[in-house]
Design a protein around this nucleic acid. Sequence first.
DNA 1: CCCAATACTTGAAGCGCTTTCATGTATAAT
DNA 2: ATTATACATGAAAGCGCTTCAAGTATTGGG
Lengths: 329, 329
Amino acid sequence: MATIKDVAKLSGVAVSTASYALNNSKKVSEETRQKVLAAAKQLNYQKNGLASDLKRTSTNTIALILSDLSGPYYSELIKGVQDVTSTNGYDLIACSSIGGAQSTAVKFLKEKRVDGVIILAHNIDDGTILESAREGFPIVVLDRSLKSDYVTQIEVDNVHGAFVATEHLIESGSRDIAFISGPYNSHDNELRFQGYREALDKHGIDYKSKWKVSGGFTREGGYQATKMLIAQRDVPQAIFYANDEMAIGGLQALNEKNISVPGDISIIGFDDIQLSEYVSPPLTTMRQPKYEAGALAVHLIFQMLLKEEVDSYYKLTTELIERDSVKSR
Amino acid sequence: MATIKDVAKLSGVAVSTASYALNNSKKVSEETRQKVLAAAKQLNYQKNGLASDLKRTSTNTIALILSDLSGPYYSELIKGVQDVTSTNGYDLIACSSIGGAQSTAVKFLKEKRVDGVIILAHNIDDGTILESAREGFPIVVLDRSLKSDYVTQIEVDNVHGAFVATEHLIESGSRDIAFISGPYNSHDNELRFQGYREALDKHGIDYKSKWKVSGGFTREGGYQATKMLIAQRDVPQAIFYANDEMAIGGLQALNEKNISVPGDISIIGFDDIQLSEYVSPPLTTMRQPKYEAGALAVHLIFQMLLKEEVDSYYKLTTELIERDSVKSR
DNA sequence: CCCAATACTTGAAGCGCTTTCATGTATAAT
DNA sequence: ATTATACATGAAAGCGCTTCAAGTATTGGG
């Protein structure tokens, strides 16, 4: 591969001049610039981005860390992130945290291959984030509660959202309400569970642990959890799935057993992913302001990059989206 | 930020020794290693990945370029890519080609920030790819036909798939079959159109250009295109959407006008995205072996990285997935 | 007890680039 | 003609790391 040295030699100028020419600095004459550009073209020169980033100590790119790149993830969130990132002339890369400490995500988090990172990946532990947080390297987390000088936190109001969801189920006439939970290491999951409990309490309904089963936030998990619930014989009147993916899996399980939704059982999800609108029946769920969350996250990163003061905590609110999976009374 | 120099100084060894210790080389004594590790911990040292990549002239990461990170994209494909990549101890990053020549994608393509790239992004032009292709930098394209020594091409059999889809529509009794196309710069789109034409020809049906309208491969585009078709008065008996996303948008438009699918009109899509199974009615479509395509792509990249000879062209086949959006006769 | 082999350790070079600073050259002002 | 000004170019330092080649210390065989 041709380097800038080769270009300089071929065009008969110094390396520094070549660099200026290539970077459109006005410090070189038009004539020289053309000469250099021609040489570059002839050699099919492509600059080594690593080298220039190293020298400049900035990469102009920010990373979005997702727990699983292939998930039907928050495409609206990504859109928010992407819009703001590119508007500011920065690059965005997405990487997955599959593999835990050995994952690509951790590599990007630690090795300053990017200028800032946004994390939405419950399988990255707090310690890793804390170790990586440092002055001049903004991190924003969307999926956990974390206090540190260098990380800022955006949270949707999970507790309240779950409370509203559960109450919605209660108000539609259900009292036996199961909670299909996400993974136990998920902060979001915990908060949603808390909201569920609070709603139960408020309406004087006893919490029964048999109504809590884990579905790991995946469709398959929701499917299994629901089947388990059904196998227990005593089917609840309603199910609150801690996310939509599990609800969709659950829907399938219910369907297979000919349990009608919302005729026999009401179900509600959380997130409002795209699919939710299209399943049958359309899923009632709690919407998170995902685009806004993504956009805000990058926005904050840029502020921090500019050394501006930002709050360390932001809370966004959720909204009940009523569709047809909950019995109307 | 602490550098390796700082670590070396604090632990009282040479930089080179620190480097060896940090990289678990067995050239240093256990004692020294511990000393260095302790110093690193104390300084919260994190290596600069850019610097080490630059020195080693390899990044151990491969990039997946998608036209739009936020699309409900081929999650199976990503899964295939991801599985194989991580199995080989490499990292994967995804980036978007939104923004054309200024996009992140192009930056990664040209500036050797990665060791290889997989492209599925019709908005990157052939020229850019050709310019970047070079010995030792494997590129595999999934969305176009491109001859070059350094790029290898994986294609699904679009022509045949589209042919089968169209014929399926014809065999179910339709003769007026509209084609909702993708963007004109899409190679896939073109081939699908060709398959459509061939099926028409074979069955002696005249192609009418009024039945071809563009939906740009997006849901919204499919929705608009379908509305336009309806506005034309003369509604076709069937519609072949060049991808599922458009079909789903179309479904919505049809729904709004109370045109029953498949009662009044049959529709078929292409891709078999996840959603397709869940819309109502479930969408009949042509499935692409997406996981396989992704896995194969990375596999080939690794082969090329090892300087092994690979074919420059692979073709995968499609499969008709019959669901309920086509009238059964 | 000497010399060679073994085990660590280290200095220095250099990956490809940007950028500072010094220098050289042409032009304008005195 | 001389000095001041602007502009163009070049030499060299250095970003943080890896790795080669060479050094020093330790060990063991003869």
